[in-house]
């Protein structure tokens, strides 16, 4: 505890400022501000499933409120010259106090500066991109598909394929999807994967799905991570020794990265 000498002739004898409590209040406020920044800049969409955003908003309110109340308490007890409240219980420190506060403040400041970025093609490839859903993946009992095949997103396509995998059943259907480009090693030069990440809870469980696209003759292969809107007709092709659906006669339109780059 550091004592702060009062230079002006105040009514009270000089008293030390409750630095620890002030630092705690600052820490809470910084965390609240970090959450607020993610919300305002829309970066929360890169981190969380939209269903759980209200929890993050709740946390923002709680953190800011606790920070303000803590600050007010410090101010009041300083003005009135009261000591801290009696300790409610014995408590065993896990980490030295300075270390935990320092760590939390550092992370909050970092979170206020750093801009999270969505996962991209390299990660998609590393995590094993596929048009098949693994054992632990979300398989909704019911997902609504409008009759129009052009309304299906990539994950809709993949879920549909999972229920009924025969590629020929889809031949000739129109598809209209958007996603980013991933190059799969071993595929012919005129093929790439149009992909998206899917979230069930938060970015920690993001997994990639994708559909192979056949480039029209003469079109250069787009660079990985380019965001494209693709209008195409479904056909079948054999890639990696497996017969699967591909998007043929594709028209590629470059689009900016969407505000919500994941599908759910």
């Amino acid at each position: 505890m550091t004592s702060l000498p009062r230079t002006n002739g105040s009514r009270r004898p000089r008293r030390s400022l409750p630095w620890q409590a002030l630092i705690d209040a600052t820490m809470l406020l910084l965390w609240g501000l970090m959450f607020l920044r993610f919300t305002i800049t829309g970066k929360l969409y890169l981190l969380l499933h939209p269903d759980y955003m209200w929890l993050a908003h709740l946390a923002t309110v709680l953190l800011l409120t606790m920070g303000i109340v803590r600050g007010a308490q410090v101010w009041l007890s300083y003005r009135q010259g009261r000591g801290p409240a009696p300790r409610s219980q014995e408590h065993i420190a896990l980490l030295p106090r300075q270390l935990s506060v320092g760590l939390l403040i550092a992370i909050a400041v970092f979170g206020l500066i750093y801009t999270p970025r969505p996962f991209a093609s390299e990660t998609a490839f590393q995590r094993g991109i596929t048009d098949v859903l693994g054992q632990t993946r979300s398989r909704p009992q019911r997902f609504s598909l409008s009759g129009n095949s052009e309304d299906r997103t990539i994950v809709d396509w993949v879920r549909t394929l999972n229920v009924y995998p025969e590629p020929d059943a889809y031949a000739g259907q129109k598809a209209q999807v958007s996603g980013f480009v991933t190059h799969i090693p071993g595929w012919p030069d005129n093929y790439f994967m149009i992909s998206r990440f899917v979230l069930t809870c938060c970015a920690a469980d993001a997994y990639p799905v994708g559909l192979p696209v056949e480039l029209p003759a003469g079109t250069p292969r787009p660079a990985p991570d380019t965001w494209l809107e693709i209008g195409a007709t479904v056909q079948t092709a054999t890639l990696d020794g497996k017969r699967q659906i591909t998007l043929g006669s594709a028209t590629l339109t470059e689009i900016p990265e969407p505000r919500t780059p994941y599908e759910y």
Binding site: W31, F38, L47, P118, A203, A204
Partner: peptide, 17 residues
């Protein structure tokens, strides 16, 4: 970048609880 995004994602999801 992925690591940091993942890190903040875990923090933002876990902090409310």
């Amino acid at each position: 970048n992925n690591g940091i995004t993942l890190f903040f994602s875990l923090l933002v999801e876990a902090m409310p609880f």
